[in-house]
Amino acid sequence: MRRLAVGIPAAIAVALIALPLAALLARTPWSTLGEHVTSSTARQALFISLQTSFGALAVCLVLGLPLAWVLARSTAPGRHLLRALVLVPMVLPPVVGGAALLFAFGRNGVIPLRLSFTTAGAVLAGAFVALPFLVLALEAGLRQLDPRYEDAAAVLGAGPWSRFRHITLPQLAPALVAGSVLAWARALGEFGATITFAGNLPGETQTLPLAVYVALQSDRDAALALSTVLLGTAVAMIVALRGRWLTR
């Protein structure tokens, strides 16, 4: 009886994910896929998407690791508020996030970095929505570390940076990889914040999701082809990491 109680909802969950993907692949115009995928629109969008998603990941890593360290190791009061703040981009509608970024960093922003309508702006939009994923994963990973290994390293003469490089980081690797994949994927798929803050310009800020949306208006086959490219990129990443780090 328990098998059914668990198995049936689980099967429905799998179907919920698998069926739309199967429908997408079924409707993909395989005969013309080649020319759509190699069109300049597709190539530009793929390039921009890879650039901005990995760029966003880099920003998240540089900023997110120290932040996760503070959340995991600090005892200062108010760190609960800090964690709540970090989670806000996760619950904020992306378009609202994009508007907020405009008001903060746009031409007339509070800090007029003038990043709107730039590729850097698209990177920033991606980093904004992806950062919480990385920080949460890293904080959890840091909490699981046994700090006594760092003590042992200190007795052996390792300074703080060396302890971090040789003891903390290698043990943090699984959480780091898992968090990075989540953050990268989130940035790759970002739409609302990107269009609102960075705009939509082929070759500069038109990412794959934006290209798909635009194509949906006029050329369904192209939209499906681009969707397949997006799907393929994400799957390729997951396969590349297949279990090696994610399930240690």
């Binding site: 746009g106 031409r107 309508f117 269009i195 705009g199 939509n200 310009l201 038109q206 949306y213």
Partner: peptide, 21 residues
């Protein structure tokens, strides 16, 4: 050389209204 190709005219007008364009 436009800065962006917005998805509808309302979005374009918004950008002008807030001074981004």
């Amino acid at each position: 050389r436009p800065k962006s190709l917005e998805l509808d005219v309302e979005a374009a007008l918004q950008k002008v209204a807030i001074g981004e364009a």
